[in-house]
Computed example of a mutant assay.
Amino acid sequence: MTQVVLAGGGTAGHTSPLIATAQRLQEVQPDIDVTAVGTAKGLESRVIPAAGLPLVLIPPVPLPRSLSPRLLTVPFRLGKAVVEARRVLRRAGADVVVGFGGYVALPVYLAAATLRIPVVVHEQNAVPGLANKVAARFARAVVTSFPHTPLPNARALGLPVRRGISELDRDAARPAARAALGLDGHRPTLLVSGGSQGARRLNVATRDALPRLLAAGVQVLHVLGPRNLTADTVPVSDAETGARYLPVAYVDRMEDAYAAADFMVGRAGAGTVAETAVVGLPALFVPLPHGNGEQARNAEPSVSAGASLLVVDEELTADRLLAEVLPLMSDHETLAAMSAAGRGLVPGDAAGALAHVVLGAAEVQ
């Protein structure tokens, strides 16, 4: 029986492709044994067990974004996490490690290297993170979501997504999805989501634009992020049009949100860019202005293909959101063209392709 350990966590950008790959591995080889490794601080502590996958926790090793005394503690904390990761790999009898980046991935990569266990790296962003840059130097295989990601010997296979998304027929699923979410089945629907943590800029712009969106008859499903859903954030309806605003902390089945929506406003994380393209959901991307610029790079192929629009973070006001979104909500021809442009943009079965890479690495160790 093949033993696979998958490492990745922190945000949905890491956990979603991990879950999709683990599930596809189980489909390809039903007797396979998979173990996920994460930290208690990340989203993985909830979503991975919810997906029915075993999760083992090790200490997180976040790297300070600036020079500070905490930087001096990194070697000690990293060494401790590597020791814990070695115990996990030995206990699991790992034949191969597949990592998706994030704080948890680096100690698992290093532990695998010391135990001579083959490593497969998947980088979801167009600009790679530190953990995957390190691991790519000794990995058996390096796989990316986007072409031209600067990692040695990388192959672009796309971003693994769950079958619920890769096989989604939005038109067929829309009535049931809107009913499940408590939305009107026939109104133009805007989805706003800043990812698993939410996004303040998107939330503020949406809040300020909300009266005019509802007055135009557009209903809004707003995924704020768990920390941003307060007692004051409640559903409201426009007295004249009846259009409804539905705020939620998080959506476990994003395929329902994608099916319900006619258009989306969101960040440009790799998962959002890939999933909206796969399902053919037109979008306005507002890349996160921090980090190493990976979100703007993630969105470039989609924007160039005409599947999405882009507004830089500092320019997203209520007026700009309304100017970009409202004309499209009733322009069915343009929305259909954007949808078609997205569907042909990214591979739909990256999870299957990556699963075969992982199994191949396990066989030749």
Rank of each mutant, 00 (worst) to 15 (best):
P289V: 10
G242Q: 09
D331K: 08
S339E: 10
V234L: 10
E300C: 07
G242L: 06
L322V: 11
S304N: 14
L229N: 11
R253L: 13
G266S: 15
V286C: 00
V325Y: 02
G271Q: 11
F285T: 01
D256L: 14
G271S: 11
G293N: 06
P282I: 00
A323Y: 11
V220A: 04
L322K: 12
R297M: 10
L316N: 03
L322C: 06
G291H: 13
T317W: 04
P301I: 02
L328H: 03
A337R: 15
Q295D: 00
A259C: 13
N228V: 04
T241C: 02
N292W: 07
A231Q: 06
M264V: 12
E300A: 15
A270S: 14
D319E: 15
G217N: 12
G291F: 09
A337K: 15
G242S: 09
L284G: 03
V286I: 15
A243W: 05
T334Q: 12
A260K: 06
E240I: 13
L321P: 05
V279H: 02
P289L: 05
G271E: 08
L309T: 02
G269D: 01
D319Y: 09
M338R: 05
H222E: 09
P289F: 07
G225V: 13
G293P: 12
T272V: 14
A283Y: 00
A215L: 09
L335C: 14
L214N: 04
E255Y: 05
G271R: 09
V234P: 07
R267K: 14
T272E: 00
D319H: 14
T317Y: 10
S237L: 04
D319L: 04
L281W: 02
V220C: 09
H332F: 04
P301N: 14
P301W: 01
F285I: 00
Y245Q: 12
P289M: 04
H222L: 11
A216S: 14
V251H: 07
G293D: 08
E333Y: 05
V236C: 06
L224Y: 04
A243E: 06
A283C: 05
L326P: 13
D252H: 12
G271W: 00
S330G: 11
A270L: 05
S308R: 03
A215H: 07
Q219N: 08
A257C: 07
T233E: 10
R227A: 12
F285W: 02
A283H: 01
A261S: 14
G342I: 00
L316E: 02
L309M: 08
V248Q: 12
Y258D: 00
G225E: 12
T276S: 08
S237V: 15
D313S: 10
T334W: 02
A299H: 00
V286A: 00
G217T: 08
G342Q: 02
L246M: 13
D319I: 09
T233M: 09
S339Y: 10
H290K: 10
A283N: 02
R267N: 08
Q219Y: 08
A231L: 11
A215M: 06
A299I: 03
Y245W: 15
L310H: 04
D331T: 12
R267I: 13
G293H: 10
L309H: 15
L288H: 13
E314Q: 10
A259E: 08
E333C: 12
P235I: 07
L221A: 10
V251S: 10
N228Q: 11
P282N: 04
G225S: 07
E315F: 04
E315V: 04
L316C: 07
E333A: 14
A318I: 11
D238L: 06
L214W: 07
S339M: 10
A259R: 03
A341R: 04
H332E: 11
